[in-house]
Design a binder for these strands. Structure first.
Lengths: 350, 350
DNA sequence: TTGTAGGCGTTATCAT
DNA sequence: ATGATAACGCCTACAA
């Protein structure tokens, strides 16, 4: 049972308690050099006793540092990807004493620029995390550049070396995934592209093509449909694909949400998955394991990617040298139950 | 192409430009009275010309108002409910010039108190929105009370009149939903309870019982299973229910995520929905319309509830008289395809 | 209706 | 290695 209002301790209280000046306390708090060990100890224990916490507003006013990071994101219906981004970003911020501010965007939108400017200046964030596709929206990146606000892009289409960006090898992963289908005996494999604004879309598409080539399968543009990473577009694309004179026996959707749409469309037509049609997704978000049948997909370490993006961003804000483009993160194919050899099974196929 | 750094205008610049004192500018900015219209206009146009934005840090330091609202939430696997809460809360905050800070919690957790205290003080939020079940976690509400931080609870179990809280009539809605099943001819209707910590769980359960009574159907504890609002618990509960010697022909799950689990379990057993089993959920979150078959459920206006909670909270922070417990929000039954009369259809049933 | 002075809790500058 | 003192930009008294 603590008392009601012990008038939060200030830097002066700590200084007095420790018998030093406020500047020394400030030095200790900010981990600056030029403080004798003994002095530091005195200050530290005073801080503990008084439960002193620096006042963020005063700090910001004086020092120009808000310790705020922004997450500007596209607020789509499908939130599965974003939950992971949020989790990762938040954790990284918290671990470093930063708070996270949210700025949902609805795309396309003529006045993104104003909204983001408002957000960046009004909310006075020091840096901004930009999950795909925003890392590629010039209106946004140019503005932030002009505002001198560092950014960290997650899975941008063309990563600019001077900025922080994290990505994963989703092209390769899509290739493996497609190969898995091919090895099961599928010859006609449909592909649903992701949103053209996302860098991942092109990468995944080319992964698909590479798998075809590698196995001597002809590529047919008929089997490729444009999607937009959401359920509805997946459903529509599946519908078109299944209406083809010679429909594919398997469909690769560029993400789980679209794969869910494919499953839905198949059900509506009374098609059994994977009996009549194999379906794979991408991301291994929550929904993938909740569908029936559970989706074969690719696990993308979104949480860790977001964590890393935020971590690097904050490091940069703190003036540390940042080595952005390490290795891309590794994806992992997750086999579940939405895939099977096409009927009839013909062992002679390979 | 704007210039790089026009040294952001301060209140002094505005005062000078308008030929008044800073206090007058302050009055205008804060909508205080006692400013002649002509003066106000002068100031306003100076503000526009200079693109003046009050410095939030200075404001907070001086005026004790951070214009920050916190959202403390349980960060569960299932994010469907929270996406809506987030959308609503964010919008209400934005509309009023507030920013939203996030504090995800993992329950159960021995040191929630410390985490929340840290969040509340360190992040210096003025008020906190508490979506269920957090409005009922005494460790949290007591702490906030002690810290004198106003809170707004969304769907708390026992709404305390002195606090802000918004809820909906989910008891009644569950009753209607169950009656719909009964009217279709179902006699043995299973029920999966929600997480016992959520107020909504008890309300929904009693709605279920009321429907039974009203139609002269016997209540059987055998047909009721404990769930926790997540997919897995729904699946488990369904499994138990379906293993019963005389399994139910319909199952009411207390939310969509659990209903998804029921669907999954049914599929695993080769049961057809709604042919062999009718299933209903609650919330009408994203997942409900993505499943196969799409779920009959209850649309809970979560976004609007969250919006209202945040709005009322901010009103209170601004010293306005807040009339919390208006009417509960109205829910709405959404009929989709997961329900059908039990086989064989016996028109004589009513 | 308007203005002046003082303070909010830090960090930064420049001594010592 | 440490300390006085001046910003930082605004708001709340209290005058006028």
């Amino acid at each position: 049972m603590a008392e009601a209002g012990p008038k939060k301790a200030t830097i002066f209280d700590v200084a007095e308690q420790a018998g030093v000046s406020i500047k020394t306390v400030s030095r200790v708090v900010n981990d600056e050099s030029n403080v004798r060990d003994a002095t530091r100890e005195k200050v530290l224990s005073a801080i503990r006793e008084l439960r002193y916490k620096p006042n963020a507003a005063a700090r910001e006013l004086s020092g120009k540092r808000s310790r705020l990071v922004g997450l500007v994101y596209e607020n789509a219906q499908e939130f599965n990807y974003l939950k992971d981004v949020l989790d990762g970003t938040l954790e990284a911020c918290e671990a470093r004493g930063y708070s996270l501010l949210l700025c949902p965007l609805t795309l396309p939108n003529p006045d993104i620029t104003e909204r983001v400017r408002e957000f960046a200046t009004q909310a006075r964030v020091e840096g901004i995390v930009l999950p795909a596709p925003l890392g590629d929206v010039a209106a946004v990146t140019a503005l932030l550049h002009q505002l001198r606000i560092p950014l960290a892009a997650i899975a941008p289409k063309d990563p600019r070396p001077e900025e922080i960006n994290v990505s994963c090898n989703d092209g390769e992963a899509t290739c493996s995934l497609t190969e898995y289908l091919i090895e099961q005996g599928h010859q006609a494999i449909g592909f649903i592209e992701g949103h053209p604004d996302h860098g991942a879309s092109a990468a995944r598409f080319s992964g698909y093509r590479r798998a075809l080539e590698r196995h001597g399968l002809a590529f047919s543009a008929l089997l490729v449909r444009q999607g937009y990473f959401d359920f509805d577009s997946g459903k529509t694309a599946a519908s078109e694909l299944l209406d083809l004179p010679k429909p594919p026996s398997a469909i690769v959707a560029s993400n789980d949400d679209m794969a869910a749409g494919v499953l839905f469309e198949a059900r509506e037509r009374g098609l059994s998955v994977p009996g009549d049609l194999s379906v794979v997704g991408f991301d291994d978000t929550q929904i993938a394991s909740r569908m029936w049948p559970p989706l074969t997909t690719v696990r993308q370490p979104i949480v860790r990617m977001a964590q890393t993006a935020a971590k690097l961003l904050i490091d940069k804000l703190n003036g540390e040298a940042v080595h952005s483009s390490d290795q891309p993160f590794e994806c992992e194919v997750v086999i579940r139950k939405s895939t099977a050899p096409p009927v009839p099974v013909t062992p002679l196929d390979h």
